[in-house]
């Protein structure tokens, strides 16, 4: 399965040591994200693919298993999707 993830346009992101805040210029909404989700958003915004993000996080968080990292990414993408910060378009690949 391939996921096509489009990030919302017109986002403003600010990172603090304890969390990330993001302003969506299109909707006018402001959200608080946990550090990991914020990091993922930040990477998505700099046009990193999900695979690249996975590998990067595996290096940054060596104490976590690959399965756990997958789970975290899934949860974060869910949250970002709920906040309309990304659109996850799932396509089945034969």
């Amino acid at each position: 399965m391939m996921e096509n993830i489009t990030i919302a346009g017109n986002l403003f992101i600010r990172c603090f040591s304890d969390g990330v805040v993001v302003f969506n210029g299109a909707t006018g909404d402001t959200h608080k994200l946990d550090v990991l989700t914020g990091k993922i958003l930040y990477y998505l915004e700099s046009s990193m693919s999900i695979d690249n993000i996975k590998s990067t996080l595996e290096i940054e968080m060596p104490e976590q298993s690959i399965v756990d990292i997958d789970e975290y990414i899934g949860k974060s993408l869910n949250m970002l999707h709920e906040y309309s910060l990304v659109v996850v378009d799932e396509r089945r690949v034969e």
Partner: peptide, 11 residues
């Protein structure tokens, strides 16, 4: 207080 939370409550 967490800065990210401060930000949200401030606005």
């Amino acid at each position: 207080k967490d800065k990210s939370q401060t930000f949200i409550e401030l606005i």
